[in-house]
Write a protein that binds this DNA or RNA. Structure first.
Lengths: 303, 303
DNA sequence: TCAATAGTGTCTGTAAGACATTATCAA
DNA sequence: TTGATAATGTCTTACAGACACTATTGA
């Protein structure tokens, strides 16, 4: 509609305006993309009868340079001028895991002024969920300083203080990232303030051992999101192989939620998310188990 | 732990490294904060007996310069180097509504390469919910080109196509922003692709009349988030005055959800989120209604 | 046989949907 | 009296939690 013919107060058409626009006028922050790449793997089983245990793992990278040299950080990097945030995230993902076609969602954007001692850096975080059976290709060739840590994140203190017009709820989480060699940890304080009808949530790192930047906070946030979404969506299936037993699926739920579930109830809950196959597990030291696959159309009614 | 004594490959300590760090080495995108400020207001009532209708409103600003000159955009602006994203969002909020202490949450970060014709701009969007009785102070003094639009966002086409390993679900939403003078509209396409166990959601603006940039897409996203969260959180109370009737509360739910609810069921559902007072409405053309207030401790058990 | 997992049935209480009924005001 | 809203009761169905029980395998 001849928008371009309109002129602004300086009498410029859009074309002229864009011509004269100086993008370098203002100082700008840097923008990075940080990836939280989760997977679930098996621990070796204790004896021939028992099933292997499942653990939640997160990919971290050892910093080779300042700042936080020698500490572990989330994979990520600066966004390029000609790629969208999603493209940047997918690029990082590909660089680290060499896998395409993975579940990925934007988590949160972190923008505190002094998150990075180098300069003002705003970080957009993405969470990706990977089926570990795909992953035997191994995480990354080049960076031998990338590796998978077992994640655990537990609430260990909860304190509610009533105030005049509401309350303050303070929670302390203990985050642990570990493997055979390394043992990182952090304490994250999550404070929910309710005053009148208005509530606010703030996160703060109380202490952080071996985890670079504010990444402990980001990991805690991601675990919380994962725990929430697994309850009412089908994201858990992104962590499963093509065929799986219902017990394996339940173990994935349990390791993410951090608590045990009752078998019968769990099976009822996920019943229409799966389709049974004719295959069974073999050579278990006990009764074989039917294999299932994901049913993409499980929520046909409504949704 | 004398982290600062460690040296990197160039033999620099952290102090020396930060000294020599040149933040201007790489080209960087601009970062803005966009605010979605919602409120709910009363329409005048039809006759002395009927209750006033409630409508959902969104604050928009008329663009005085290129690009999209003359069109309406979300309030927002460039982030300053010495303020966090939250601080920037609160600053914008204060500038536009002159209110502090408001509910606000980060929504999503939009980073497509060509969202803005001027330069690469990444926008972090925040949603704020305001009680309109507070707001009679009027939205913004300076910018007389800021005003409240009635929002409606309706699904009007849904199409599911089965594919080899999943399906493609395509939804078309009709977004309308209107007041006495202006009538803006847009069509947003939301495509959910499920392939194997991996799913992806993409949003695209099909057409946009009078709404600047990709803001129609952002508004649709916000409305969807609002509709989701009102079902399982207490955010609706941020839109209510200090004292309110249960019917008013129900109307707010209905106008956001875009459908009617059954009174008895609604009251059961929100029963423990409210506390009754001894006050009643007066001078209604019908039976007076008890006034309630929010109960901040409604979710004492668990959560 | 036995240690382990696989798989199913059922009782309970809670919550949501649908609908019906009574109460109370001002013009 | 009447047209409107206020407020509560109850029937049904769905689902989640808890627990008990039977089935099947390899060593």
């Amino acid at each position: 509609m001849s928008e371009s013919k309109k002129v602004n107060k300086q009498g410029l058409t859009e074309e002229e305006f864009l011509e004269s626009y100086d993008a370098s006028k203002y100082e700008r922050p840097s923008v990075t993309v940080d990836m939280l790449i989760f997977t679930v793997t098996n621990e070796k089983k204790e004896n021939y009868r028992k099933l292997p245990e499942k653990v939640l793992r997160l990919l971290m990278i050892k910093r080779a340079d300042h700042p936080y040299i020698g500490q572990w950080a989330l994979p990520g990097g600066f966004i390029k001028m000609d790629e969208s945030l999603e493209e940047g995230a997918l690029r990082e993902l590909k660089e680290e895991t060499n896998i395409d076609n993975i579940y990925m969602e934007q988590l949160y954007t972190w923008g505190d002024v002094n998150r990075d001692p180098r300069t003002r850096i705003i970080s957009v975080s993405y969470m990706a969920l990977v089926d570990s059976s795909n992953l035997n290709i191994k995480a990354s060739d080049d960076a031998d300083d990338a590796k998978w840590f077992t994640v655990s994140c537990n609430l260990y203190q909860e304190q509610k203080t009533l105030t005049e017009k509401g309350y303050i709820l303070q929670r302390l989480y203990n985050l642990r990232l570990s493997d055979e060699e390394d043992n990182l940890s952090a304490v994250i304080k999550v404070v929910k303030t309710v005053e009148g009808r208005v509530s606010r949530v703030e996160r703060e790192i109380v202490e952080s051992h071996g985890i670079a930047f504010d990444h402990a906070k980001i990991i805690e946030y991601a675990v919380e999101r994962l725990r929430n979404k697994i309850e009412y969506t089908d994201i858990a299936f992104n962590l499963m192989p093509e065929r799986f037993t219902l017990t394996e699926l339940q173990q994935v739920y349990e390791v993410i939620l951090g608590r045990e579930l009752l078998k019968a109830n769990f099976r009822r809950k996920i019943a229409n998310m799966v389709i049974e196959t004719n295959e069974y597990t073999k050579d278990a030291g006990h009764r074989p188990s039917k294999l299932f696959r994901f049913n993409p159309n499980w929520n046909d009614i409504s949704e």
